[in-house]
Design a protein around this nucleic acid. Structure first.
Lengths: 248, 248
DNA sequence: ACATAATGTGTACAGTTGTAAACATATTGC
DNA sequence: GCAATATGTTTACAACTGTACACATTATGT
């Protein structure tokens, strides 16, 4: 392997005598003994971000080393790398719920799109590693992982759909339609995650352009929703559409 | 046409006296000597599909074994695993262009959505490994790989946008708008790839449901496009103005 | 026909991987 | 205080990794 970044770490972390009153410091502050599990999770995300491999191609030893812990200590907390991935997903789910809560704070429906996009941007930038994992494992991970991610997104879509429906902006749309709309919006957002992650930090104009583009995408979507079933009295109401009522 | 080309009955059986470990290959038809490069490509896709790892986590030796060649033979064709990935992308790009050509055959704009979706489905099912690579490396691969994939999709979007514009269905939309619409449609399709790939083969009803869902998504998108710029004060309203003045 | 390049094979080696076994220390419950 | 449990370390090993090297075979151009 052409890596050879660091040559064999003899000691993982020497005797940091306890006496650590405070925690929650920066990354390299010595943490308490029991924090190893969290350290492993953080380390895994860090390695995944630094390296460009997915969770499956993640080295247990590399993660342990990054966490400042012996390789075998890994097994005290996770039996498997996939299990660590599931634990990651729990954290990511929490983060997404916080984001949803933030989005819901907006009162004015007129400003809804822009303000939601803004919180989305700031959340992605503040949790880039988590979003990176999310968008990377969504298609690449194990079947179990993919299913779990799909679950998260489905939950998110349901919540958003109910929010939209409560707003009453699209009275002609069924609940299935609302869910579909919400799902499309979320897909749009998740799709943009890599772009947001690759955003150069010093230039806000690129971000502005991306935001404007996403705004237009969302508006076009909402425009379509607003006219849904409005101008198709019977023409396109074929028998096939009515037959399939149940989503997945 | 690409498949059964060489049935040349040369009797020069390659004197494989060594008989290494067991072969997991399903149909190991002896291929000609010079086909190794293609064999490696196919083997890489097969391993990637069987295993669930991305291209980066792919073992050179495993690929070589699957291709039925010695590990060192790999270097005769690719210097790197990433380079093999780029070669893969070339094949995938060809496939996508064939798909686009197929989509363009449709004359009736009324049936456009359904027929396009149908060709999309059949292409995904006939080239599942390639689509798997595409959707997996789109977010997970190396920076170079991701850029290349983005290029492919961008090309595809441009082509589709020009097609749509030539149809003249949305006269109020600028070229940028057309591109955005095309891009959204393609994103929708790429997003659905994992779902299509996970489709159970024995049940056509699930596929029908997915197709119906995608149809509605596309229709909602097109509906939004049809009303784009229709219901707002025309040219003077730039997006900068709208930022503060949206109260009506 | 013959030199040369292209394409393939086997061997070797140093690093890395996951993980088992035995041991050490800290935390907790009684 | 003391056993039990939780959490961590060290050592060890077999399997696997990429790839350098020397060599064998085939294809190709003149």
């Amino acid at each position: 392997m052409s890596r050879s970044k660091s040559r064999e770490t003899r000691q993982f972390r020497s005797s940091s005598r306890t006496r650590r009153g405070e925690n929650t410091g920066a990354d390299n502050a010595p943490r308490k003994r029991g924090d190893t599990r969290q350290n492993l999770l953080d380390a895994a995300m860090a390695v995944m971000a630094a390296d460009q491999s997915g969770l499956a191609g993640l080295s247990l030893r590399a993660v342990a080393k990054e966490a400042g812990v012996s390789p075998t200590a890994f097994y005290r907390h996770f039996s498997d790398m996939e299990e660590l991935g599931m634990a990651m997903l729990d954290e990511i789910g929490d983060m997404l719920r916080r984001m949803l809560r933030e989005v819901r704070k907006v009162g004015d429906p007129q400003q809804m799109v822009q303000s939601s996009l803004q919180t989305f941007f700031s959340f992605v930038k503040e949790n880039r590693e988590k979003f990176l994992v999310l968008s990377r494992e969504r298609a690449g991970g194990s079947a179990r992982m993919r299913a779990a991610i799909r679950n998260q997104m489905s939950y998110f879509s349901t919540e958003l759909a109910s929010d939209i429906q409560l707003m009453g902006a699209f009275p002609r749309m069924t609940r299935d339609d609302h869910y579909r709309l919400a799902s499309m919006i979320i897909q749009m957002a998740v799709n943009a995650v890599p772009d947001v992650l690759d955003l150069p930090e010093d230039q806000p104009e690129t971000e502005q352009a991306l935001a404007s583009d996403m705004t237009k995408q969302a508006l076009m979507l909402l425009l379509g929703a607003a006219h849904w079933n409005a101008d198709r009295p019977a023409a396109s109401d074929s028998e096939k559409d009515r037959k399939n009522r149940k989503g997945k």
